[in-house]
Deep mutational scan, measured.
Amino acid sequence: DEWTVEDKVLFEQAFSFHGKSFHRIQQMLPDKTIASLVKYYYSWKKTR
């Protein structure tokens, strides 16, 4: 599952609005599965 720079920026924006409500985040990133969002979240969180 490839994440473009745009995907990553959108994820951060969606996360700032919705927190860990992955269903709502998915509405902003409809091409990503919930599982993909959760997996990305945990790898992204480690870099914070």
Rank of each mutant, 00 (worst) to 15 (best):
D1G: 14
D1V: 15
E2L: 07
E2T: 11
E2R: 13
E2D: 06
E2C: 13
E2K: 15
W3Y: 10
W3K: 07
W3S: 05
W3R: 00
T4P: 01
T4A: 05
T4I: 08
T4G: 01
V5P: 10
V5M: 06
V5F: 12
V5D: 13
V5A: 13
E6Q: 15
E6T: 10
E6F: 08
E6M: 04
E6S: 01
E6H: 08
E6Y: 04
D7L: 02
D7V: 04
D7W: 03
D7C: 11
K8E: 07
K8C: 04
K8A: 06
K8F: 01
K8I: 10
K8D: 01
V9L: 11
V9A: 12
V9R: 12
L10W: 01
L10Y: 09
L10T: 04
L10N: 12
L10V: 14
L10P: 10
L10I: 13
F11S: 03
F11R: 10
F11P: 01
F11E: 03
E12L: 08
E12C: 02
E12R: 00
E12Y: 11
E12F: 06
E12K: 05
E12T: 11
E12G: 04
Q13G: 00
Q13K: 09
Q13M: 13
Q13I: 07
Q13D: 05
Q13S: 07
Q13W: 03
A14L: 10
A14R: 06
A14N: 02
A14Y: 07
A14F: 09
A14S: 00
A14V: 03
F15Q: 02
F15E: 01
F15N: 08
F15M: 04
F15L: 05
S16G: 13
S16T: 09
S16W: 07
S16P: 07
S16M: 12
F17I: 13
F17Y: 07
F17H: 12
F17V: 13
F17A: 11
H18Q: 01
H18G: 03
H18P: 03
H18N: 02
H18D: 06
H18Y: 14
G19S: 08
G19W: 03
G19M: 06
K20L: 05
K20R: 07
K20M: 14
K20G: 11
K20V: 03
K20W: 07
S21Q: 15
S21H: 12
S21A: 15
S21C: 14
S21P: 05
F22V: 02
F22G: 03
F22S: 01
F22R: 00
H23Q: 11
H23N: 13
R24V: 08
R24I: 06
R24W: 01
R24S: 09
R24D: 15
I25K: 08
I25Q: 01
I25S: 00
I25R: 00
I25G: 00
Q26L: 05
Q26G: 03
Q26H: 06
Q27N: 12
Q27R: 11
Q27K: 09
Q27W: 00
Q27P: 02
Q27M: 15
Q27E: 13
Q27D: 06
M28F: 08
M28G: 02
M28V: 12
M28S: 08
M28H: 10
M28R: 06
M28A: 10
M28N: 12
M28E: 06
M28P: 03
M28L: 07
L29Q: 04
L29Y: 04
L29V: 04
L29C: 02
L29N: 03
L29S: 00
P30S: 01
P30T: 03
P30I: 04
D31W: 08
D31R: 11
D31V: 08
D31E: 14
D31N: 10
D31A: 09
D31T: 10
K32A: 01
K32Q: 01
K32L: 05
K32V: 00
K32G: 01
K32R: 08
K32F: 02
K32D: 00
T33Y: 04
T33I: 00
T33Q: 05
T33G: 11
T33R: 04
T33C: 02
I34N: 11
I34S: 04
I34V: 03
I34P: 00
A35W: 09
A35P: 10
A35Y: 09
A35I: 13
A35H: 12
A35L: 13
S36F: 05
S36K: 06
S36M: 11
S36G: 12
S36D: 12
L37C: 00
L37I: 10
L37G: 01
L37K: 04
L37R: 01
V38Y: 14
V38K: 15
V38S: 12
V38Q: 08
V38W: 07
V38M: 13
V38L: 13
V38A: 12
K39F: 02
K39E: 07
K39H: 14
K39C: 07
K39V: 03
K39G: 13
Y40C: 05
Y41G: 01
Y41E: 08
Y41F: 05
Y41V: 05
Y41K: 09
Y42M: 15
Y42E: 14
Y42L: 14
Y42A: 12
Y42N: 14
Y42K: 15
Y42T: 14
Y42G: 14
S43K: 14
S43L: 08
S43F: 07
S43T: 11
S43W: 10
S43V: 13
W44D: 15
W44K: 10
W44I: 06
W44N: 15
W44L: 10
W44P: 03
W44Y: 15
W44A: 02
W44V: 00
W44E: 08
K45I: 09
K45D: 14
K45R: 13
K45G: 04
K45F: 08
K45Q: 13
K45E: 07
K46E: 07
K46F: 08
K46T: 03
K46S: 09
K46R: 09
T47Q: 00
T47V: 03
T47N: 13
T47E: 08
